[in-house]
Amino acid sequence: MNNLEFHWNRLETLSTHAYHAIMVARQTVFVEEQQICCVDADHHDTHCWHLTALHDGNLAAYLRVVDPGEKYPEPAIGRVLTTQAYRRLGLGKHIMQIAIAHIATQYPAQAIRISAQSYLQPFYENLGFATVGDAYLEEGILHIEMLRPSNT
């Protein structure tokens, strides 16, 4: 895909326009499409690296990397999404690969933890994650905890 730009920001360096676009996308995907009833914005947002993928200025994909010790002992990837217009193009895999590389640089020799929707288990396994523990319900959706060992 041409004209795709990836940007890393801490919350304090995001423009109000960029943060608004992220929150609209998160509400659209998680609240409207997946009908998750919890408040999406949380205190973890202030302790994250936010990765946006922009195509011609439009938010195409997003995820956040929660600092180690904030949610789990390890850095954690969460709120992974691709907006509807950009699905089925491999962008989810691409943005995850960028996040994994970023974590290897920012937090060397640390594993990565995720709480994944169960149906995405094969997707995350292909990225090197392995299931740890049993499946559990979170906001009515079956999830599994997964861990990716460090590269060192």
Rank of each mutant, 00 (worst) to 15 (best):
T152V: 07
V65T: 03
A53P: 01
G133C: 14
I36A: 05
E5R: 10
T83Q: 09
N3Y: 10
L54N: 04
R148E: 04
A18S: 13
Y72V: 01
P68S: 11
C48Q: 10
R113H: 08
E12D: 14
A76H: 13
T52F: 10
R10T: 02
W49L: 09
M1V: 10
R79N: 08
G78S: 14
L51V: 04
E74C: 00
M146A: 04
D40G: 01
I77Y: 03
A76S: 15
E12M: 06
T46A: 15
N58P: 03
Q34K: 06
F6Y: 15
P75D: 09
H7T: 12
A109K: 14
P149M: 06
A111P: 00
Q117V: 04
L120Q: 01
L54M: 09
A76R: 12
L11T: 03
L14N: 02
I112H: 05
L147H: 02
C48H: 12
Q35I: 13
L147A: 00
S115R: 06
S115W: 10
N126S: 14
L120S: 00
E145N: 13
H44W: 13
F30D: 06
Q84T: 15
R88V: 08
K93L: 05
T28W: 07
E12Y: 14
Y107I: 05
S118E: 15
A41T: 12
C48G: 07
R113D: 00
L142N: 11
S15R: 13
T46W: 08
S150P: 11
Q84L: 09
G57L: 07
Y124I: 01
I103G: 01
Y19G: 01
A116M: 07
L4W: 10
P122V: 11
Q110A: 04
G69D: 06
G92L: 06
V24S: 02
A101P: 03
V24N: 03
I95T: 01
Y19K: 02
L4S: 05
Y124M: 02
L14E: 04
A41I: 14
A109M: 10
F123A: 08
Y136W: 13
M23D: 03
R26Q: 07
Y72I: 00
A61H: 09
L127G: 02
Q34Y: 08
H47M: 11
F30V: 03
I112S: 00
L142M: 14
T13V: 07
F123Q: 10
A104F: 05
L120W: 02
D56T: 04
Q34T: 05
T105F: 04
Y136T: 06
Y62C: 00
D40A: 00
E139C: 03
E125G: 00
C37E: 15
A101Y: 07
G92W: 09
L59G: 03
I114D: 00
C38E: 14
Y124Q: 02
D134V: 06
R10F: 04
L81E: 05
A111D: 13
F129P: 01
L63N: 00
A104N: 10
I98D: 08
G78L: 15
E33Q: 08
H44K: 14
E12N: 12
V80H: 09
C37I: 11
F6P: 00
R64E: 02
L120G: 01
L11W: 09
Q121A: 15
H20C: 14
S150W: 06
H102A: 13
H50F: 07
